[in-house]
Design a protein around this nucleic acid. Structure first.
Lengths: 137, 137
DNA sequence: AACAAATTTGTAACCATTACAATTTAATTC
DNA sequence: GAATTAAATTGTAATGGTTACAAATTTGTT
């Protein structure tokens, strides 16, 4: 998605496309690195020296309300964000810390505990050791 | 599980069964209410007036290392714990805040992204509105 | 150009968690 | 069983991510 479309996409979702918002959404949707607020803040600081950490917080909060991003809370005190809002899983390597995406085609839930419940969001994550880290030792 | 067995269970998992540890594990495994540290602390304070919040933190950390409990991090700044370590899902009602357990019989993961990965922990949670809250309005 | 509204920014406050040293309790040795 | 050592518990202080808030800047409107 190029800059123009990025701006259009924000507008379409009821978000006024300021420079900061465009840059933050662009970062999230192109890097696909599941960053923390601080990662985004520090990386964007290079090209936007006046950027404030609070703006990154505010912007993510706004994006969440408008449902164009999702929050990943695998570990306490480490909130991450993802521009991919389609159902998919995350694998976090406990050794290198990297987060991998994987597709989910099907989840079979038992019986009828959730009958008549309204499910609005689904999150699945695995924790373990990735291929690279297993081979490296 | 009665007190005697509770103590045996901790021992079997390499945990010295102090009174505090027994009470905390007992609370978690019988109430099944997915409590936060503060909930456990405040509730147990009734019968153990000298209990320290730090002890609850320490104890949960120990239990996690020994893998007899699991951590639930659905929302940032709200870590909860569960003595049920078998694979199962959690549904959190965004209205009343209650957490429901549900069974999972099957998760179909796409292709081979996770081939040769070692998966040690699986977490699945849904967010939405529970039956009660949907009927109440 | 002047005014109003929205956004961004920086600082201070908040609060869950952790670090740490002191106290208490339990285990071990003589 | 008293003395010594080790482990667990406790309370307070420090840490750090997040939020509240007011000032400054930018954008939109008359």
């Amino acid at each position: 998605m190029i800059m123009k479309n990025m701006s259009e996409y924000l507008k379409k979702n009821g978000i006024k496309p300021s420079l900061q918002r465009i840059k933050i959404y662009e970062y999230l949707s192109t890097k696909k690195n599941h960053p923390t607020v601080d990662q985004v803040y520090n990386d964007l600081l290079q090209e936007m020296p006046t950027l404030s950490r609070t703006t990154v917080y505010n912007t993510f909060k706004l994006f969440l309300e408008k449902k164009i991003i999702m929050m990943i809370t695998i570990e306490e005190n480490e909130v991450r964000y993802d521009a991919n809002t389609k159902l998919h899983g995350h694998f976090k390597c406990e050794n290198c810390g990297k987060i991998y995406d994987f597709g989910i085609s099907y989840i079979q839930v038992d019986e009828d505990v959730l009958n008549d419940f309204l499910v609005e969001e689904r999150q699945l994550y695995f924790i373990g050791k990735c291929k690279n880290c297993l081979l490296d030792k």
